[in-house]
Amino acid sequence: MTKTVTVSGRTSPVQQSRSRFLSITCPPALLSFSLLLLIAVFQLALVAPLQAAENVFTSVSAIKEEAGRFAGEGKLFLKGPVDPYLTGTFVTAGLFGLTYLFDEDIRNEFAGSHHGVMRGITDAGNTVSNPLLHLGVAAAFYGTGAVTDQVKVMQLGEEMGEALLLADGATFVLKGAIGRGRPYQTGSNSSYRPFQFKDGYDSLPSMHTASSFALAHVVAAKTESIYGKAACYAAASLAGFSRVYQTKHWASDVILGAAIGELAGAAVTRYRSAPAGSVTVAPVAIEGAPALALLGRF
């Protein structure tokens, strides 16, 4: 005999948290839009005119070039916290530690029902900072540049995509490895379940924030206007604030996410601005055998 027990027809707080986590992390409508955008870009690139610039959709040499470039940028990204941003690393560590002390106070300040103008602003901030949407935007720029033979537009899409892959990849790995409980999941900012990959225990660092700052760095590097640069970082900062305001992340999650995003964007722009003749060494595999490759601009 099977016994069923219902308590006031309501789900438990944990079930509510998991449901909210799933809906926030990957909204079905946004996921569908991003996938459709990627498919459309791919199809447009395939039917691009013959005179269009080589791109990763149609050229093997372009794929190889992109792989080599991404490897070089990855190396700069990994060593960036020590060289050349050691001072920045110490500053970030200090900010992270200080914010960590006040995480729970900040969460409590923003806890409760949200409504009015601030709710609308932070709803928008959460939506436009979704990493899937950012990847779709990068693909759209790249595809448009490939189809219309506008190399600068295609290059901007490349840089966006490379920075996003570095930032999102790093945060994805760290989230699962650290396993920090989200503010709506646990009452303490020091609740961890490392390497368990549980819903609601992937708070540190904030991927939305990292993705937003990576994109902001790349776009800001393309404009000479101080107001344009400020607008890029203001939008990225709104993303981080929105995650904290709506208790999706601890404040210290946002600090680390912003640092990772900025580091990823800087790795891409630094690699591309390297003077001709500069090289870097990166591990590769040749017919299954480990080897080292010299990557650079000549």
Rank of each mutant, 00 (worst) to 15 (best):
T4H: 08
V5D: 05
V7F: 13
G9T: 05
G9A: 06
R10C: 01
T11G: 07
T11N: 07
S12G: 05
P13R: 06
Q15S: 13
S17L: 04
R18G: 04
I24F: 05
I24A: 10
T25H: 13
L30S: 14
S32H: 03
S34H: 12
I39W: 10
Q43G: 08
L46W: 14
E54T: 08
E54D: 15
E54V: 08
V56Y: 08
S61T: 10
I63C: 15
E66K: 13
E66C: 10
G68F: 09
R69M: 02
E73L: 02
E73F: 02
V82E: 00
V82K: 03
D83N: 13
V91N: 11
V91L: 15
L95T: 14
F96I: 03
Y100W: 10
L101T: 05
I106G: 07
A111E: 15
S113Y: 08
H115M: 15
M118C: 13
M118N: 14
T122W: 05
G125E: 00
G125Q: 11
H134N: 04
L135R: 05
Y142M: 09
G145T: 06
A146E: 06
D149G: 05
V151W: 12
Q155F: 06
E158Q: 14
E159T: 05
M160A: 12
G161E: 10
A163E: 07
L164K: 00
L165V: 13
G169H: 03
A170D: 06
A170Q: 06
L174S: 14
A177W: 09
I178E: 02
G179D: 05
T186Y: 03
N189W: 12
S190D: 10
S190P: 00
Y192P: 00
R193T: 03
P194H: 04
Q196F: 03
D199H: 08
S203W: 02
L204Y: 14
P205K: 13
H208S: 08
T209V: 12
S211E: 13
S211R: 02
A220S: 09
A220I: 00
A221Y: 09
A221I: 00
S225E: 03
S225W: 09
S225A: 09
G228P: 01
A231I: 04
Y233K: 10
S237E: 04
L238N: 09
A239I: 01
S242E: 03
R243H: 06
Y245D: 06
Q246N: 12
T247G: 13
K248Y: 07
K248T: 00
K248H: 14
H249I: 03
W250R: 05
A251F: 12
D253C: 04
V254I: 11
L256Q: 02
G257I: 00
G257H: 01
E262T: 14
A264Q: 09
G265N: 02
Y271W: 10
Y271L: 00
T280S: 13
A282Y: 01
P283M: 07
A285N: 08
I286F: 14
G288K: 11
A293K: 12
A293R: 11
L295R: 01
